[in-house]
Design a protein around this nucleic acid. Structure first.
Lengths: 232, 232
DNA sequence: CGCGAGCTTGAGCCCCATCAACGGGAGTGG
DNA sequence: CCACTCCCGTTGATGGGGCTCAAGCTCGCG
């Protein structure tokens, strides 16, 4: 692992407060690897052998049943996945694949559980990370059950804008096909949803979006920190 | 707190491995209280002051937005709620109300966090409990997005049957109105779903259900441990 | 006996999925 | 440089699942 990458990993919330020696132990056991786009990393039902941490790129968590497939979430740099399964020594409930070329840190599950037992700061960080994952899932559930497709898109666009500094201009972080899956709709419907939002000042040109009337959009989307804010 | 109740709480997975003195400290700070049906215990957006543990009865977690209300889950005896918010010292993402008369243990959030810091066995149990909550939410999400209403009902009936010993005869744990909300549908639609399942050997008479053709029902519901099994 | 709550049934509608066709941009090979 | 192809995104037509509104039904209870 390169020194700057190591420093990067060390700076993640999960490892920040960890004992130096323990962190070195963990990293010695870990693999940092680059994957091309659309490589499946894990398969639901398989045993959780590694904790995964995305350092570059983007990973899609998805699940399938009876022939359908759904996107559960996208994991961005700094994010972990499969933490709960690793801690429980259980099977994966979700599959994962790279959305784009990605650099991923893989820590053997056994090592994670060992560090969890021995390092108090690490176990605290793990709990906070797991609590964040849980709350993220609750918010996703609320978003899905309480809002219509158009409302979900509107709220998502406002969130992207906010995360980009609130300038009203930004690029979508995923292609529209992926965004549709993430929002729980078909690509066709996402397209129609964008069209529906045009009167609300949403101008989409390929991946580039301009929100020219944020207030109108907010009146429609009714954003709510208990659904839309990452930090809450 | 009565001695048998204390023993009951002590036996919960969360406290089983805890140090005796620490457990006594926690219980000294805690309140055990009985609530009538339909009492709201917490309101989403409020600060998490207590960890709640249901010892008798049943509690509904729900959320609201823009005038609609949805049921997130039902918490049964032995179950906890609001654990993530307590650990993060954050606001509730969900509201809670008693579904029936319920006996509930309330532990001040500060005391929970203190015990978490000081008692290794407790912090391990907390993490496992939190991991279970997370995985439960993932399964709920998969159930909702991957299956139709009829399929969700069929899978749920099979699960209730299994939990009652697989005899093919059991009583619904909630009234149908509540069951409908839990399955993410309206009461009208639940009623129609039961009618749809009649050709599959589902005989529902009030709260009493008989499954006379489990194999047929399974062919329809396609139960999957990664969605339906509590233990996985 | 009358009333109300919970449940069921029916009719109409809306949201969204599906299927199909089309346009345009990127990459490829001639 | 152009023709070809493939893939993504869009648009239209259609259908189904589920919601809403409304009425009827049954059972328990006063």
């Amino acid at each position: 692992m390169r020194a700057d990458e190591l420093a990067n990993v060390r700076g993640l919330q999960l490892f920040r407060d960890m004992d130096d020696a323990r962190f070195a132990d963990l990293m010695r056991a870990a693999y940092l690897q680059t994957f091309p786009p659309h490589v499946q990393l894990i398969q639901e039902g398989d045993r959780a052998d590694f904790l995964f941490i995305v350092t570059e790129g983007c990973v899609e968590l998805f699940a399938a049943w009876n022939g359908h497939e759904i996107t559960m979430m996208m994991v961005e740099p700094g994010g972990t996945f499969i933490l709960a399964a690793v801690l429980k020594d259980a099977v994966h409930l979700m599959s994962a694949r790279t959305a784009v070329k990605s650099r991923i840190l893989m820590i053997p599950a056994e090592a994670v559980r060992g560090a969890f037992e021995r390092d108090d700061a690490f176990s605290r960080s793990i709990v906070l990370e797991l609590a964040d994952c849980y709350r993220g899932m609750v918010k996703a559930q609320k978003d899905l059950k309480l809002r219509s497709g158009v409302e979900r898109l509107a709220a998502r666009l406002l969130r992207y804008d906010r995360e980009h500094g609130g300038t009203g201009t930004f690029s979508l972080p995923h292609d529209k096909r992926t965004l549709a899956a993430l929002l729980g709709m078909t690509p066709e419907n996402l397209s129609r949803a964008f069209a529906t939002l045009r009167p609300y000042g949403v101008e989409a040109d390929g991946p580039n979006v301009v929100l020219s009337s944020v207030a109108d959009l907010q009146r429609l989307a009714k954003p709510n920190p208990l659904i839309d804010d990452k930090a809450v």
